[in-house]
């Protein structure tokens, strides 16, 4: 029980704006834009069993702040940087509507994060320049307990 695996990858949020974007920023408070799980919330205690639980971040783990006008969307993709086993699946969802004068759609159900760029949520009607704050959470799921 002395060996440990350390897994790391980057979650890219692509914000595409069909108008002039003033700024896009992503934070989660004092920790920066990071979700670190140093200890799993549950461990296997019976021989022969697989992991059956999920790791879920806080509901308001990360904030995305977009300063823009209409016709923008947010896509998500992962880029593995170190030792991320494909049996670990990552999901993301938008856990709130944020603030500001904006109508957004999509992203409220957990979306699998893959190496491909996938549409997360979008705004397509508002023409008001404003500051928007969004929240989302990240969910990790272990389908097979197989690590290289």
């Amino acid at each position: 029980m002395r060996a440990y695996l350390f897994i790391l990858f980057f979650l890219f949020l692509s914000v595409v704006c069909f108008s002039q974007t003033t700024s896009v920023a992503i934070t989660n408070g004092s920790m920066g834009a990071t979700w670190s799980i140093p200890t799993l919330s549950s461990t296997i205690t019976k021989a022969g069993k697989n992991y059956e639980h999920v790791e879920t971040s806080a509901l308001s783990h990360t904030y995305l702040k977009v300063t823009s006008i209409a016709f923008w969307n947010v896509s998500v993709q992962q880029t593995v940087s170190s030792n991320w086993d494909p049996s670990l699946k990552l999901f993301v969802r938008r856990s709130g509507d944020g603030t500001g004068l904006v109508t957004i759609s999509g992203g409220t159900a957990f979306l699998p994060v893959t190496s491909g760029n996938t549409l997360f949520f979008q705004d397509y009607l508002d023409w008001v320049l404003d500051v928007k704050i969004f929240r989302f959470s990240i969910k990790s799921r272990d389908y097979r307990f197989c690590f290289l």
Partner: peptide, 25 residues
């Protein structure tokens, strides 16, 4: 719109430390 489109890519770092497991029965 297309000519004005721009893409920015903020990043979230995600890391998981998996424990070693050795159980037999």
């Amino acid at each position: 719109f297309s000519s004005l489109a721009q893409t920015v890519q903020p990043i979230v770092n995600v890391s998981v430390t998996m424990p070693s497991v050795a159980l037999i029965d």
